[in-house]
Design a binder for these strands. Structure first.
Lengths: 213, 213
DNA sequence: ATGGGCGAAAATGTATCCAATTACAACTTT
DNA sequence: AAAGTTGTAATTGGATACATTTTCGCCCAT
């Protein structure tokens, strides 16, 4: 069964924004999108509004829609929020993670360590974090964290590209600390390790302002 | 000049949800709203999507729209997020507050202390907090905090009603501590005072689960 | 009497058409 | 020549009509 037209548009455009096909600032014309999906402009407008709600698209009345763009300070702010919210989320998730999920998380840490190309690294790293929250109940907290991930994804890529997708030893150590907290069902340690990981990432990122040009 | 049809709908419905005219769980039929605003259903659909983005409305495909409802644990979670995010926001706001705004904040603390009815108290308290963030740059952080305020507003009212809108001495003291931090340009104190205020409110709220029936 | 399925009514989803707004460009004016 | 103005093209906003989906009452069968 095929999902509704707006859903298809939302899913596709979201993917293209996250994987970099659509760069921040790119214009989104309703008619073009409608033609592309063999639909009329109404479902497209619905889809654009949904994407706006996800923070991925900016709509300006009587003017048009563009892929969202973060300034340096906005990106910094997003990381500060992550630092506060993600630890809360992971601590709510850990007690509910199933053995199979923990197994997968363990594999992911190894795979990330052995990742050879940038897109692979980004995909695995994202999967690791999103899966680590899989035990948390759906709700505002999860929604907010996922939105932060989505809106900063482009800058994560830009930063990784700049530093030769610097999968430094530090990153691996941090991942292992987080994983250890998960495996040992020690929410407090996972929280601390995750917070430290995000904080270091934020500080490192703030030393590469050239991403935002 | 009158703003666009969707804006009028969004503004009006948002007000009615916040002031309690529309209770959580109330159904929102597109046709009814369209008739009421002398518009067609398209602008109404746009408006509902925007309200969904604000977390005030739930849309279910092919079924309908309802005013958002929080469970006890969701409301608790929202307060935990407030506790983490609001202090961050107020510390970013304080350096940019203008003298006139600080003056108004001072007045508000007094007015809150003398508030006689429930709706007045809710309105003044809300104005105090929102104004205390007025110095912060627009962005995700501010958006998130405002969304938390909006989605929890109904439960703030229910709780205040239950406890005789308990404007306890503790509340006044906390407000004064926050204000003192603002006046003395001491962001750190304001942060601490605000966090303590929210935490106490959260704990108190969690002792009144009957609100969520 | 109760449970399940069927059908009609009602609400949402989509397409097409027209109106309103905006942006751009050419033109006039100083 | 530069700045302001006006007109036209392009794009979005809104309304009407139609299709699809869901829902709920009703009937029938067990």
């Amino acid at each position: 069964m095929a999902s509704s037209a707006p859903s298809r548009v939302v899913e596709t455009l979201r993917d293209e924004i996250l994987n970099g096909t659509l760069a921040p600032g790119a214009r989104l014309r309703q008619e073009d999108i409608a033609l592309r999906f063999n639909a009329s402009r109404q479902p497209v407008r619905d889809a654009l509004r949904q994407l706006e709600g996800d923070g991925l698209v900016n709509l300006v009345a009587n003017s048009g829609a563009w892929v969202s763009k973060l300034s340096e300070s906005e990106c910094f702010e997003a990381y500060q929020m992550r630092e506060k919210l993600e630890p809360l989320l992971i601590s709510r998730s850990i007690p509910n993670l199933k053995p199979a999920q923990i197994q997968r998380l363990t594999e992911l840490v190894s795979e990330i360590e052995r990742a050879t190309d940038l897109e692979q690294f980004l995909r695995l790293d994202r999967e690791f974090h999103l899966l680590s929250y899989a035990g948390a109940a759906p709700g505002m907290l999860r929604e907010f964290v996922e939105r932060i991930w989505n809106t900063t994804q482009h800058y994560r890529r830009a930063f990784a590209k700049l530093s030769g997708f610097a999968t430094s030893e530090v990153t691996h150590m941090e991942h292992k600390l987080i994983l250890d907290g998960i495996v040992r069902n020690d929410s407090a340690q996972a929280e601390r390790a995750l917070e430290a990981h995000i904080r270091r990432t934020r500080v490192t990122l703030s030393e590469h302002k050239e991403i935002f040009n």
